[in-house]
Write a protein that binds this DNA or RNA. Structure first.
Length: 798
RNA sequence: GCCCGAAUGGCGGAAUGGCAGACGCGACGGACUUAAAAUCCGUUUGUGGAAACACAGUGUCGGUUCGACCCCGACUUCGGGCACCA
């Protein structure tokens, strides 16, 4: 078959007929199918795009044949760091490179034969889009969900700029190699933690992969524990958070994070130098590094002492970087006998280690003993089980006004300020008189100026553009300055699924009634690497907008599917340095998009991915030629009754089995098994070999079953068959269950769990019948136990 | 380090706790052909055996079960994420 010519022919026809456009009048039967939109980084679509978009399109096309009105838009997540880095390197403006990349990708996406409705396209770098990203930020601000606070950033002292985590390699700047420091800067945060509880509980009702839900649960990290207030010997106090209040009697020192504001206040003169040095050193370590259990613990004594509220004991206050300022209260009570990190630390620095928990059976296991047990050396709590002691001790503290029960989340607020050029400007104004003032909504968008020196020089790129920075305060009219930062691109992508149905709306970010109708997204498909960030941010934004009354659903994505990663032929992740990058165009230009799509369907388990091996592509082309040949033969069989009824029934069984499986498999994103069933049906047709009406009907069913996978080719075969209209709008075949009932089945017979043979009996044969057949096969008569699952298994225990 | 996955023939992969290896690639054999290609048909987990058949077999070790690729525990290796790549 001339795949390329066939594709050209049908693409043209579909475009003329606007076959893929979304019919808004049929919105009641809508299915919103969405792929994570693409980042226009390289110039060409890569294999991952094909795998995500091409195969999700198979699913979208199935839904259309099943009678749904599918909303399937496409767009670009166009702001971001790579374009800016590219600009710094080459001098090509991010807007220019991005627009060029988008133009290329749009053309390739159209060539892909995917059924996107381009009328709803969005680009996040378009002012018509980011106007509403800024609007979103303002709504969050107005509802108390955006606030400014100090937070650490990676600072390269040599490049004189903030750099991304990704650009930090072994603690050094990837560009210049200088040691990266952490610096505190004022930044905007979105208060996602306000929604921690609902983000956690809402997971239960989502049709998402269990592993993704688990990852989000762990990311949110709810933990039940308590706070304990330690008074300082010289006045003042601080709280620690602990999940093991039962061990409080064994607390022999306390530790503050180096960034803890109290450190500077309490440190004694003789310790100040060491503490300052330690703090400076801590700014050069990453969190992953700091919390690593294998790296040696470091820390210094502050010279200060605090009082353990449960027993009045004086304990030293240390500073150590294994305590993070961002989790809990930034301070921990150390119980070396029952915590591995504290144990290691105490051993190193000669701090007391005192057992306060022993095993429930009273045995004294080795320290550190981190399991639950019962309290010893713990005053009133002696003998209590861990769980009871936690509550009892926290209750006692509550009575003293020194703490109590507390739930903490690991989830942190979302930092959205970026000291970068290529992003949506933050629509806030800093006025010397009025303080922080939001840009009035009618003044949106705050346009990103084109002429900006985006090379690193110590400030945000926009901060050096006086024309941009200087503005009037909307409140007092006086001279004021804009916020020089741009928004994290995750803000842009946290709401784009709401914008698609409203892509052309210039009055609002989205129309509430229309959005309530089209959303939530029914199926969302994208990489598992987004499990905790993008997917959590989107859920947060949806819930926040719901609480503001802008929409009336709780979750943006009802069902989620992750595609796997396609590796290079060497089984390694594709990368330029490895030189193992596969360019889909090399194959698509030879075999066409249908063959390539079917190859991608068949060669991988969709959610697992795996190594690319090109052998499979000609194999698919051969298979499709095989389909063409048998269909050509079958089309001549129209109206000819079958000569052999039993043989015809076998083919009809195969037809109905394929019909039963294909739709279900595609719905489950099990594309490889769907294609396997198509191949089985094709094999059955070859075996049948009589050009009669049974073969003719089988061919028509095969074409319809296959149409979502190879739409152009099936459209061509459908036309050759003399059928009217587009096969892509023909109803997807449904199995006739009656044709799938068999009067006899082979049932495996096991003796003591080992397979000995099969017996052919009715699928609903009684236990006595099955027993008789099995014993005859085995040639035995004594049976201790007989296990029989009709139609499935017989196991004889003799 | 922490969180989450994955591991099945020569290869890609398939299997609601019930005949492991569907479907395909590759390989081998046959038919057709002067020949080749293409096509059609067949064989193909390993070991032993002429065969019937027997034994072994789903990363490693252990457990639960009449029965385990599947459930549980420990481990090994590989992959994703770890909050400023998206």
């Amino acid at each position: 078959m001339d795949y390329l010519a066939i594709e050209r022919k049908w693409k043209k026809k579909w475009e003329e007929e606007r076959l893929d456009s979304f019919d808004t009048k049929r919105a009641d039967e809508k299915k919103y199918v969405l792929e994570m939109f693409s980042y226009p980084s390289g110039a060409n679509l890569h294999l991952g795009h094909w795998y995500n978009f091409g195969l999700t399109d198979v699913y979208a096309r199935l839904l259309r044949m099943q009678g749904f009105e599918v909303f399937h838009p496409m767009g670009f997540d166009a702001f971001g760091l790579p374009a800016e880095n590219y600009a710094i390197k080459t001098g090509i403006h991010p807007k220019d490179s991005t627009e060029k990349n988008i133009a290329t990708m749009e053309r390739q996406l159209k060539d892909m034969g995917a059924s996107f409705d381009w009328d709803y396209e969005i680009k996040t770098c378009d002012p018509a889009y980011y106007k509403w990203t800024q609007w979103l930020f303002l709504q969050l601000y107005k509802h108390g969900l955006a606030e400014e606070k100090l937070a650490p950033v990676n600072w390269c002292p040599s490049c004189n700029t903030v750099i991304a985590n990704e650009q930090v390699v072994d603690g050094c700047c990837e560009r210049c190699g200088a040691v990266v420091e952490r610096r505190e800067m004022r930044q905007w945060f979105l208060k996602i933690t306000n929604y921690a509880e609902e983000l956690l509980s809402g997971l239960d009702k989502l049709d998402w992969p269990e592993k993704t839900k688990t990852m989000q649960r762990n990311w949110i990290g709810k933990s039940y524990g308590g706070t304990v207030t330690f008074d300082l010997e010289k006045g003042g106090s601080f709280d620690v958070f602990t999940t093991r209040a039962d061990t409080l009697f064994g607390c022999s020192y306390v530790v503050l994070a180096p960034e803890h504001p109290l450190v500077a206040k309490i440190v004694t003169p003789d310790c100040r130098k060491a503490v300052e040095e330690y703090k400076a050193q801590a700014t050069r370590r990453s969190e992953i590094d700091r919390t690593s259990a294998v790296k040696e613990k470091t820390g210094v004594f502050t010279g200060a002492y605090a009082v353990n509220p449960i027993n009045g004991r004086k304990v030293p206050v240390w500073v150590a970087d294994y305590v993070l300022a961002t989790y809990g209260t930034g301070a921990v009570m150390a119980v070396p006998a029952h915590d591995a990190r504290d144990y290691e630390f105490a051993t190193k620095f000669g701090l007391p280690i005192e057992r306060v928990v022993e095993s429930a059976d009273g045995s004294a296991d080795e320290l550190p003993f981190v399991q639950y047990g019962r309290c010893v050396n713990s005053g009133f709590a002696d003998g209590m089980a861990t769980e009871d002691a936690k509550h009892a001790i926290l209750a006692r503290l509550a009575g003293l006004g020194k703490g109590g029960e507390k739930i903490t989340y690991r989830l942190r607020d979302w930092s959205v300020s970026r000291q970068r050029y290529w992003g949506a400007p933050i629509p806030m104004i800093h006025c010397p008189h009025c303080g922080v003032v939001p840009v009035p909504e009618e003044d949106l968008p705050v346009r990103l100026p084109y002429d900006v020196d985006f090379r690193p020089k110590g400030t945000s790129p926009l901060g050096a553009n006086e024309e941009y920075m200087n503005c009037k305060c909307p409140k007092c009219g006086g001279d004021a300055r804009r916020d020089p930062d741009t928004l994290d691109t995750f803000v842009c992508s946290s709401w784009y699924y709401l914008r698609y149905p409203n892509a052309k709306n210039d009055k609002a970010a989205f129309d509430t009634e229309w959005t309530d109708k089209l959303l939530p997204v029914d199926v969302y498909v994208g990489g598992a690497e987004h499990a905790c960030m993008h997917l959590l941010y989107s859920r947060f934004v949806t819930k926040a907008l719901r609480d503001m009354g802008y929409l009336h659903f709780d979750e943006p994505f009802l069902r989620l599917v992750h595609q796997g990663v396609i590796l290079g032929p060497d089984g390694k992740r594709m990368s330029k340095t490895r030189g193992n990058i596969i360019n889909p165009d090399d194959y698509v230009s030879v075999y066409g998009s249908d063959v390539f799509r079917m190859y991608l369907c068949f060669a991988f388990s969709y959610t697992e991915g795996g190594p690319f091996q090109s052998d499979g592509i000609p194999a698919i082309a051969k298979y499709l030629d095989r389909v063409e040949r048998i269909c050509g033969k079958a089309f001549g069989g129209r109206g000819k009754p079958p000569a052999d009824k039993a043989k015809a029934a076998e083919l009809e069984y195969a037809v109905n089995y394929a019909a039963k499986c294909c739709g279900a498999d595609i719905s489950a994103f099990s594309f490889n098994t769907a294609v396997a069933r198509l191949m089985e049906l094709t094999n059955a047709m070859y075996k049948y070999d009589d050009a009669d009406e049974v073969l003719h009907s089988a061919a028509l069913t095969l074409i319809k079953l296959m149409a979502p996978v190879t739409p152009h080719i099936c459209e061509e075969l459908w036309e050759r068959a003399g059928e009217k209209g587009s096969v892509l709008r023909a109803p997807y075949p449904v199995a006739d269950e009656g044709k799938l009932v068999r009067s006899l089945v082979e049932v495996p017979v096991q003796l003591l769990g080992r397979l000995k043979g099969t017996v052919t009996i009715a699928p609903d044969a009684s236990e006595d019948e099955a027993r008789a057949a099995a014993l005859a096969l085995l040639g035995i008569s004594d049976v201790k136990k007989f296990i029989y699952k009709p139609g499935r298994i017989i196991n004889v225990i003799a």
